[in-house]
Design a protein around this nucleic acid. Structure first.
Length: 504
RNA sequence: GCGGCCGUAAUUCAGUGGCAGAAUGCCAGCUUCCCAAGCUGGACGUCGCCGGUUCGAAUCCGGUCGGCCGCUCCA
């Protein structure tokens, strides 16, 4: 860590992570052989496993396991009016200049066409309003400062095209302009009524979606933390604002409930308590649609930054889309016999940021017998590879054959690899560095020694990543044991149970 | 967008005008049944890219792409 974050030093720097990610096939820079493409990254063989695990767990825990949640997968290109209604298009299509004093914002090409305020030095600073484009009649000066307050410097013109623009169809004309979505949320508002009708949903209920979004960020950087193409997992949870839960308005109750659930989710899969905190948005920081927003901040190698935002978007979006589309986007409240526009709570997570956080938090360096051991202590459900099958001797054909058979059998259920290209110590270290929670080692005892006429015992050694402890189990028992271990069973407990079984 | 620093093997880095280097890693063989062991051999680079100066450029100059830091920005 450098500079401001020395108070609580991180165990890993961004440089170390970037290097590990490349060396071990997690993340590569996009188009690297051409010199790289700014702010774009590719997930490698292990990165894609990790990312898919994150998305799978989100989907399982927040969609599949809940009766009040459903998912959609919308197209990235949407009707241009969607972005008009959402407010994304309004302020960010033209070059803008800002006054550094009064903070007003002007279209750069319109500034000179505005009458301007002038404190004239030739008349002891008297204030004049001078017609557009004309110089001051007293001192001859032309406008250089803010036309409104007459005091502040204007910033250089900036093109606030935060959305990626493209064209539908082969002909580039204004009529065919389309945008790559800057957030996945809008598709869920636009499909609100479709989902409501087709699934016969009752409030409160939520729609979830995971997918790519695109923003022309002004300042991308910090590896995969802020990129212009990124992946989101968003939930729009619709509630009836007229309802009360536990004596509070439903939207406020559910907002807090989602904040707690999301925090618990990150903790469950390994982020440490001391690296997580909630951050309430100040009033002037709130987005135009938001009543209240709370971020879950994580202590990244670059310092505390947003991992997830949970906003109360009120009925802003449904009302906007109703207005622009002319379609009713309401819910019929049977009890009150009235139509209501639901409020919406929006938990929105950056999947890439979550991946970075899980990696940073999992990374540890230990000293083992005077040597450095690098370990990614991934939660087993997140680990890109669940089990590595390693022959202790690759010269013994029976051992190699048995190891391959074990890999093939376990691979029906999990991502399992085989490796025999180094001594056992090195093989373990390799798996440690990519976070494989368990290794299975096949040895002479397993298969027996035909020359000596000794029969094998059909047992293999399981080695635990974090404790480096071992337990010997029958090959037949492996699927069951890993079902327990990879499903969240603690090594110590499972190993102790194995001991008891073996003694019987 | 502005300013500063940087770009050499898979990684970390040395080399600052004269033959492209080290360590680690990787591959093969021998060896070794349990935590980066040893021995032998091997592969790996248009020195980010393009142009210029020079007898000669990784090295100097210009441009460009990419990265980091600071400022600005961040509905």
């Amino acid at each position: 860590m450098r500079g401001r974050d020395i108070l609580v030093p991180m165990s890993v720097t961004m440089d170390t992570l970037v290097s590990l990610c490349k060396r071990r096939g997690f993340v590569f820079q996009s188009s690297e052989i051409y010199g790289g493409t700014g702010s774009c990254y590719d997930y490698g063989p292990l990165g894609v496993e990790l990312k898919q695990n994150i998305k799978r767990l989100l989907w399982r825990d927040f969609v599949q396991s809940r009766a009040d949640m459903v998912g959609i997968d919308a197209s990235i290109l949407m009707h241009p009016t969607v972005w008009k209604a959402s407010g994304h298009l309004d302020h960010f299509t033209d070059p803008m200049v800002d006054c550094r004093e009064c903070k007003l914002r002007f279209r750069a090409d319109h500034v000179d066409a505005l009458p301007w305020t002038h404190y004239c030095p030739a008349t002891k600073g008297n204030k004049f309003t001078i017609p557009a484009g004309e110089p001051c009649a007293h001192c001859g000066a032309r406008r250089t400062l803010c036309p409104d307050c007459g005091k502040g410097q204007l910033t250089a013109p900036r093109q606030f095209n935060l959305m990626f623009k493209t064209f539908m169809g082969p002909v580039e004309e204004d009529a065919s302009v389309a945008y790559l979505r800057p957030e996945t949320a809008q598709a869920m508002f636009v499909n609100f009524d479709n989902v409501l009708q087709s699934m016969r949903m009752k409030l409160p209920f939520g729609i979830a979606q995971a997918g790519r979004s695109f923003r022309n960020e002004i300042t991308p950087g910090n590896f995969i933390f802020r990129t212009r193409e990124f992946e989101q997992m968003e939930i729009e949870y619709f509630v009836n604002p007229r309802d009360a839960v536990e004596g509070r308005p439903a939207d406020e109750y559910w907002h807090d409930r989602w904040i707690a659930d999301c925090m618990a989710w990150f903790r469950r899969y390994g982020l440490r308590e001391e690296n997580l905190k909630l951050r309430e948005h100040d009033r002037d920081e709130l987005s135009h649609y938001s009543k209240r927003t709370v971020d879950i901040d994580y202590r990244f190698p670059i310092g505390w930054s947003e991992l997830m935002g949970i906003a109360n978007r009120t009925d802003f979006d449904l009302k906007q889309h109703s207005k622009f589309s002319g379609k009713s986007l309401t819910y019929f409240d049977e009890e009150r016999k009235e139509h209501v526009v639901p409020y919406v709570i929006e938990p929105a997570m950056g999947v890439d940021r979550a991946l970075l956080a899980f990696m940073a938090d999992a990374y540890v360096e230990e000293e083992v017998r005077g040597e450095k051991r690098v370990v990614l202590r991934f939660h087993p459900e997140l680990a890109p590879v669940k089990v590595a099958v390693l022959p202790l001797l690759k010269k013994r054909e029976e051992i190699v054959r048995a190891a391959h058979a074990i890999r093939a059998d376990l691979a029906k259920q999990w991502r399992v690899v085989y490796d025999d290209t180094a001594a056992i110590g090195r093989l373990y270290r390799r798996q440690d560095e990519v976070g494989t929670p368990y290794c299975v080692t096949v040895d002479v005892q397993t298969v027996g020694d035909s020359e000596k006429g000794e029969a094998g015992d059909g047992k293999v050694t399981i080695r635990d990543r974090d404790s480096m402890a071992q337990a010997r189990v029958p090959i037949d028992a492996l699927p069951g044991v890993f079902h327990d271990l990879l499903g969240g069973g603690a090594w110590a407990q499972v190993a102790a149970r194995l001991e008891r079984q073996i003694q019987k």
